[in-house]
Design a protein around this nucleic acid. Structure first.
Lengths: 211, 211
DNA sequence: TCTGTGACATACCGAAGGTACGTACCTCCA
DNA sequence: TGGAGGTACGTACCTTCGGTATGTCACAGA
């Protein structure tokens, strides 16, 4: 049982992250002042600095929340598929949806790398959306018939993750997001068909030897 | 001793961008103060604000310079290839090289989107490195046998551009960049082989109808 | 009931971006 | 050739904002 003081404290912290998430999403990191955040949460800077070590820390809290929402959304979409190729297509579509959310675009894609630094950004990424893409890629490409080692699988994940992030960004700024998403879906599908074709054609000789 | 002031205005501007490029590369956008820039260029803020409208403007000048260097480097590597597939491979390797440059990573990839905003960032991108990737993709995928319209070609360019940017980033942070680059090269080559295989197999029926 | 500590509020500091204004030099033309 | 206007800066100052030091008060535990 939480004490009364703890409940108050939790709600204050949650209110701060709520406001921070909205302001960071709407105006970006640098254009959002701590004064605006504490004013929106109806507290003072003392409260903010009691719960967070600074501006970057409260940004990271908002970041993690947005990332985990996206991760959950994609994860839900990939469940219940037996065929890994179908699972991959479903995950792709969910990814394209998630990446269009304003918060994800502004906080994660745009401000994330520069605010958190590449290091921390990668860490955060790798235990959320990146992990799902990795799982999907492995479910499709792993196996003896491909002859891919760990590092090649990582490489493929990086490539697909980057491809889908960029594609998602282009979908988000498109005049007709639905049509753009359909095109991305078709293009990725085409690439995947190519890989599948290759699997049946040459049955796993020499991807790694191609360097 | 003559003061800087007695030299030409162009050289002052160039000196400012020189210092700005170095400081933005080494410390990032927000950790670089205008005072540090003008001190490094041996002028005052009056000079900086005479040549640039503000911090963002001088950042953009450095950004453009770095981008154009990368573009020139990749462009040079793709010349002199007759076979579009070979040209693509050469361009890919040059891209992976260019994207590892510290200035490109920090200024273009990390700070670029958040400082310039998505809009201006895309504009800048599309008339530099993105344009080259677009040209390469078109030289490979354009043609009646694929049945791809303009928008699908754009989509493929987006996907490949994102894939290669992400791949380049992973190469740059790798313990063994040479080996990582070789893996990326192999993976992209594998994907391209898949597409080529698909071209010969089904000869252009229905990529766009797959939605 | 007393005391310690958690959960804030208040006041203040220094850095940094930006602005208003002053000034030396250069060019151009009568 | 000299004075008038504009260019290319320099100087002083303002404001905002992230961060800190310190005060205060309520609540929990003994």
């Amino acid at each position: 049982m939480k004490t009364r003081r703890q409940r108050y404290s939790d709600s204050t912290k949650r209110a701060l992250v709520d406001v921070a998430e909205k302001l960071f999403t709407d105006h970006g990191y640098s254009a959002t002042s701590l004064d605006a955040i504490v004013a929106g949460a109806d507290v003072t800077k003392g409260a903010l600095y009691h719960h967070f070590s600074g501006k970057q820390a409260i940004f990271e809290a908002a970041f993690e929340r947005i990332e985990s929402r996206a991760t959950a959304s994609i994860g839900a979409a990939t469940e219940g598929h037996d065929d890994p190729w179908e699972k991959a297509r479903a995950g792709l579509r969910a990814f394209l949806e998630a990446v269009q959310e304003p918060g994800y675009r502004q906080v994660v894609i745009s401000d994330g790398p520069s605010v958190l630094g590449h290091e921390r950004f990668r860490e955060q990424e790798e235990r959320s959306t990146y992990a799902i893409v990795d799982e999907i890629v492995r479910s499709v490409l792993a196996g003896d018939e491909w002859g891919l080692d760990e590092e090649m699988l990582d490489t493929f994940t990086r490539i697909f993750f980057g491809a889908m992030s960029a594609a998602g960004g282009s979908v988000a700024v498109s005049d007709d997001p639905a049509a753009a998403a359909a095109r991305v879906d078709a293009a990725i599908g085409f690439i995947m068909d190519g890989l599948r074709q290759l699997l049946h054609a040459e049955a796993g000789n020499g991807v790694t030897s191609r360097t």
